[in-house]
Design a protein around this nucleic acid. Sequence first.
RNA 1: GUCCCCGUAGCUCAGCUGGAUAGAGCGAGCGCCUCCUAAGCGCUAGGUCGCAGGUUCAACUCCUGCCGGGGACACCA
Length: 593
Amino acid sequence: MKEVIQELLGQALHQLVKKDYLPGKVTDHPAADIEITNCPDPAKGDYASNIALKLAKIAGMPPMQLAEMLVEHTSRSRHIAEIRADSPGFINVKLADNCLFKLVVDVLEAGDRYGHKQPEQRQRICVEFVSANPTGPLHVGHGRGAAYGATLSALLDAAGYDVHREYYVNDHGRQMDILAVSVWLRYLELCGEQVSFPVSGYRGDYVYDIARLIRNEHGDHLRHNRFEVSDQLPADASEDGSSGDKEKHIDALIRRARALLGEDGFRIVFKSALQAMLDNIRTDLAEFGVEFDEWFEEHKLDQSGAIDDAIQRLRDAGHIYEQDGAQWFRATEFGDTQDRVVIRDNGRKTYFASDIAYLESKLKRGFKPAIYSFGADHHGYIPRLKAVAQGLGHDPDDIEILLVQFANLFRGGERLSMSTRSGEFTELRQLREEVGNDVARYYYIMRSHNQHMDFDLELAKENDLDNPIYYIQYAHARIASLFRKLEAEGVRYNQAIGIASIKLLTNDYEQQLIRGLLEYPEIIQSAAEKRSPHILAHFTHELARKLHSYYNAERILVDDENLRNARMALLTATAQVLRNALRIMGCSAPEQM
RNA sequence: GUCCCCGUAGCUCAGCUGGAUAGAGCGAGCGCCUCCUAAGCGCUAGGUCGCAGGUUCAACUCCUGCCGGGGACACCA
C-alpha cells in the first residue's frame, strides 16, 4: 500500500516539474526519494509523507505551498479516500474503506503466506550464528545468539530471501585438544587411576558422561598408569596461581596423551568428545526450535587445502609477509589496527587462517551478503574480517557482521553469575526447562540486539500474568475459543457470508485491527532489512492488544448472522497474522490456554 | 591508552535510518465480569530524552567534547 502512495506522489512530483512549476533539479535530488510513514494521528490519515518539507528549500517555495501543489496534482485512486496537506507541510493520506475491507479477504486467501514475499528470483543470504565451540553445552549467552539468528533467518526468509542457516564448528583447535585430554583424564579416573586434573581442563559433569561412554565401548584399552601420564610434566598452576604455568602444563599433557595413546587412540577420544558435544548442542538447539541447513566443519577447510589456497591468494596479491618466522596478513592496509598472523613460527596455522578460508568459502558459494552474528565481545573481528574480504578481492559489504549484546540473568532483581565455575545457572537447557521455550525465545528477541538486556527469570516465569508472550498467545487462544463456543452452540461460521458482509466492520476497534493486519507485511520487510527481530515482537504485542481491546468492547458472537460472520472473518484473519508472526519468532500459537 | 555498545517515566525498554502533542509493558492510584477464557479491558499520575556545545526550516535521532555503565584490544579458541 505504501508503494502505491509513493508511486502517486512521485508522479505528481514529476508532473509539477514537467509543467515547470518546479525546477528540474528537484527530482534529481536525493531528497526526492519519497518516504511514506504511518500517520501519527489517525484522525488525519493512515499514511503521511514529509516530502514537501524535505524539498521545500530546493524547490524554492514554502513547504505548505509545495504540499498543497502536490496534493492537487496527485491523481485520484480508488485506494485513497482523502489526501490533504497539513501544516507545517505534511501530506496525509486516508485509505479508502474498500481497500481496508479487501485486505481482510487478502489475509484469508493468503493464509500462511500473508505478508511473506516469494519473489521469482530469491537472493541467497547466509546467516551464520551460534557457532559455539563444541567444548561444552550451550550456555545462556549462546541462547540469545541462537534465538536472534533463528528469528532473523525466518524473517529474511519471509521477506523473500533464500536463507542458508549455518553453524561453524570449531573442531580443529587447541581447545578441542584440551577437551579430549579432559575426557581422557576422567576416563582414567573411572578406570581407577589417581590422576590429578589440570586447572585449564574442562570440569563439567558432561566430561564424565563422555568418559563413561568411551569406557563402555573401549574398556580399559586406553588406560595408562598415572606415572606415565604425569611423569616430568611442567608444573600446573597452583590454586592461587602463584606458581606453575597452566598453559604449559596443559600443552605438555596434550602431547603426552598423544604419545601414550598414539594418533589412533587419541583420535578415538577426540572424536568421541566432539561427537558427544555436537549431539548435545544439536539436540539442545533443535529442542529450542533452532535448525541449521549446514554444520560447517572447520577441519574440512584444512583437509581440502582451502586454507592454503586462500593464503596463497592473499600472498599472490601481495598481502602476506614474513616476520619473526611467522606469516602475517597485512590487515592494516585495509584499516585494521594491526597485522595478523596466519601461520605461526612453529608452522601451525592460526584460527584466523581458517577464518580467511571460511570467508572465501561463503562468498564463493554466492551468498550476498554473508551475515555473521557474533557476541558483542567479538567486535574486534569486524575490521579484520572486512580486511580479509578486501584482501581476497571482494566487496567488504558482501559480508555483514552483526553483534548481539550480552544478556544478564537475574532472579528477582538479583544478578546471577554466569561463570561456569560458580555454576549457579549457566546452561541454555536449564533456562529452557525453567521458563519454557516460548518464553525464552520471545524474551531473547524482544529487545534490540544491540542493547544489553536484563533477563529476569522471576518475571519470565513466575509472574506469567504480565508475560508479554502469554499475552500474545492468549489473544490467539481467545479467538480459537470463540470458534469453539460457536460450535458448542451448534452454529456454523460461514466465511462467505462474512466476506460478503465485511463492510459492516466499521467501528474503531475493527478499523484498528484491520490497520494492524495491513501493517504486518511492512513490519516484516522493515524488521528484516534492519536485522531487528524485536520490531516484529513489538508489533505482535500491539496486534494482540488491539484484539483484546476489541474483545472487551464488543460482543463478537451476536445474533445478526451477517455481522457475526463478518466479525468472525476479521478474527480469523487476525489469528492468521498472529500465527504467522509467532511462527517466525519460533513461538507456538496455542488454541487453548 | 585505542576501539565498540549503551545512558529516554520509579523499573525494563520502544522511538520507524531528522519531522507534526516523546510511547509501551511492569510498578502506583481509580474503575469494569448475572455477558464470548478478568492470563483481559478502560481511565489517571509520572520524563530538563546523561551533560555541554554544534549542524539544520526542524535533533531523542547527525557531529564534537565531557561524565557514567558494560565489553573488546593474543603467534587463545
